[in-house]
Simulated assay, not measured.
Amino acid sequence: MKEFEVIREFFTAQPVSRKDVAMGIGDDCALIQANNDKYIAITTDTLVAGVHFPNDASARSIGHKAVAVNLSDLAAMGAEPCWISVAVTLPEVDTEWLREFTAGIFELTEYFNVQLIGGDTTSGPLSITITAQGTVPQGKALCRNGAANGDWVYITGDVGKAGLALQAIRNQVELSPREKNAVMEALNYPKPQVLAGQIIREYASAAIDISDGLLADVTHLCRASKLGVNIDVNDIPIAEVLIDKLGEEGAARLALTAGDDYQLIFTVSDTNKVALETELSHANIKISCIGQMNKSEQINITRGDTSLSFSESGFEHFS
Rank of each mutant, 00 (worst) to 15 (best):
Q298L: 13
G139A: 05
H64K: 12
S61Q: 06
S205N: 15
K161M: 13
S296Y: 13
G118D: 08
L264W: 07
D73P: 02
K191N: 07
E9M: 12
T271Q: 10
T271H: 09
G197D: 07
G134Y: 03
E202Q: 11
A76P: 08
I200D: 06
N35D: 14
E316D: 05
S211L: 00
I285Q: 01
T121Y: 11
S61D: 12
I238C: 02
G63M: 07
S288P: 02
W83M: 09
D151S: 08
L31M: 08
D217G: 04
Q172M: 09
S85D: 14
S85C: 15
T267M: 00
I130K: 05
D235K: 15
P91Q: 05
E240Y: 09
L126N: 01
V86W: 07
V153Q: 01
N36P: 02
D212E: 10
P15Y: 09
C82G: 09
E312L: 13
M77G: 09
L187N: 03
H282E: 15
T156G: 02
G228N: 09
T129Y: 13
T102C: 09
S319C: 05
E110S: 12
M77D: 09
Q33F: 06
T12W: 12
Q198V: 02
A275F: 04
S58R: 09
N234I: 09
F315K: 14
A239C: 08
A30L: 15
A22Q: 05
G314N: 06
L264K: 06
E312A: 11
D158I: 11
N70R: 04
A13N: 14
N181Q: 15
T109L: 05
G24A: 13
S288T: 04
D120W: 10
M184G: 03
N294F: 06
Y154N: 04
D28L: 03
S205R: 11
L175K: 05
V86G: 04
V69R: 02
Q14V: 14
V229P: 04
E185C: 10
M23K: 10
K161A: 12
N35Y: 02
F310E: 00
I238Y: 01
G314S: 05
L175M: 08
V183Q: 08
V48Y: 06
C143K: 11
I7D: 02
N171C: 11
E248G: 00
I128N: 04
L142T: 02
V6Q: 10
K180E: 13
I128E: 01
L74Y: 07
N171V: 04
Q263A: 04
V88W: 05
E297M: 10
Y39W: 14
N145F: 12
G250L: 03
